[in-house]
Amino acid sequence: MHEILNLVGDKWSVLVVRLLGEGTMRFNELRRAIDGISQKMLTSTLRNLERNGFVTRTIYPTIPPRVDYALTELGRELLVPVTALAKWVDTNRERIDEARVRFDEQQA
């Protein structure tokens, strides 16, 4: 279980899965949509998700080559808990921020 959570539980994988849940995207579309991710990290994240069966990579023989990424059936199943987690964060963002402020004030 720990190994699988490490594969899909990092922040970049969660963001990629959420974005691909909206539909097929190209590499640069993903990169523009994810603030702060480097090309190297996005490449690594997509390869990891593809290797583990969550994402498909389709190459079209055009000039320049076109590459599309999409969720597999397994990836769409993963989207369910990822979406629930995102909703939970949105619902509890203020409580989390308040807890951080209280903690930081106690540490000062």
Results as ranks from 00 to 15, higher is better:
1 M>I: 09
2 H>T: 08
2 H>L: 13
6 N>Y: 12
8 V>P: 00
15 L>M: 12
19 L>E: 10
19 L>M: 10
21 G>P: 02
22 E>K: 09
26 R>Q: 15
27 F>R: 01
27 F>M: 00
28 N>L: 11
29 E>Y: 00
30 L>I: 03
31 R>Q: 14
33 A>C: 02
36 G>K: 00
36 G>P: 01
40 K>R: 13
40 K>S: 07
41 M>G: 10
43 T>W: 03
44 S>I: 06
44 S>E: 14
53 G>D: 09
54 F>H: 11
56 T>I: 14
57 R>D: 03
58 T>G: 03
61 P>K: 12
63 I>P: 01
64 P>C: 10
64 P>R: 07
65 P>K: 12
67 V>N: 05
70 A>P: 00
70 A>M: 12
70 A>F: 05
73 E>I: 09
74 L>G: 06
75 G>Y: 00
75 G>H: 01
75 G>P: 00
76 R>G: 04
77 E>N: 07
81 P>E: 03
85 L>I: 08
89 V>H: 15
90 D>E: 15
90 D>G: 13
91 T>P: 02
94 E>I: 13
94 E>R: 10
95 R>L: 11
97 D>P: 01
98 E>R: 15
102 R>N: 09
102 R>A: 07
103 F>D: 08
103 F>P: 00
103 F>V: 06
105 E>A: 11
107 Q>H: 11
108 A>S: 12
